[in-house]
Amino acid sequence: MIEKPGIGRPLAHVVLVLGVLVVAFPIYYTFIASTQSLTTILRPPLPLTPGDQIAANYGEALFGGIGRIGGVAVTTLLFNTLVMALGIALGKIFISILSAFAVVFFRFPLRMVFFWLIFVTLMLPVEVRILPTYKVMVDLGMIDTYAGLILPLIASATATLLFRQFFMTIPSELVEAARIDGAGPLRFLRDILLPLSKTNIAALFVILFIYGWTQYLWPLLVTNDNQMNTIVIALKKMVSFADADTPWHMVMVTSILAILPPVLVVVLMQRWFVRGLVESEK
């Protein structure tokens, strides 16, 4: 080792602990606030330990009448968000695998034309074309539908490109062996390619699930009906309705509920997530 047995390593631990405190503090603080009564919250500074309202606040948010946001139950909002996040993650993985499979394992007229057609969409997020996309949604009658929440966000090439990269590393002989073994393209996809892509799929699932869960601008535009809101949108609406009497304790409870599922997905699937993130580079 180069490092002298001295202050180097303990110092690093100190830095990291401080870093963790800074990074995790906003979330911890939100949790603290979610366990206090509104009156405690409105009289800063807030204590640093959980309050006694935890059961009351969470009970009210999940089952109580006042916990309903804009007339919608939290469970409905969570369900909407889950549908959107799963729809985006699974939908994108599905269409990306198919198109990457076509581009890598077949030769056909206009192959590169199609590839570029998809590739161009690589980094153009929906944010740059919100207004025209919104008009398209209106024309198609997709406002306030799950399809309207999901489909426009699937139109991107990142996942396709990732799968293409991976498929290109599959040795040719594996394809040939499968053909000799009597596997057609779809059987090859199911029996060989998908099992080999497991890690990539898991990583991409985490990344896309987070992406879908945390969307804001698009669901804001494409949902008019409160029943179709995602939890993030509803949360924002709770604050902006009337600043003076924002029920901050309920906002904090809802925030925790909005943060928890994606945090769980990231932490529990950390291994794949990290590998996928760093390997795919976005």
Binding site: P171, E173, L174, E176, P195, L196
Partner: peptide, 27 residues
Amino acid sequence: PAERDIAMVFQNYALYPHMTVRKNLEY
């Protein structure tokens, strides 16, 4: 290829990496 009643041994073996040896033989 599958209809020609042949079998092939490849230079890099081309075994299916996610299958056991038995599954490779059975496939």
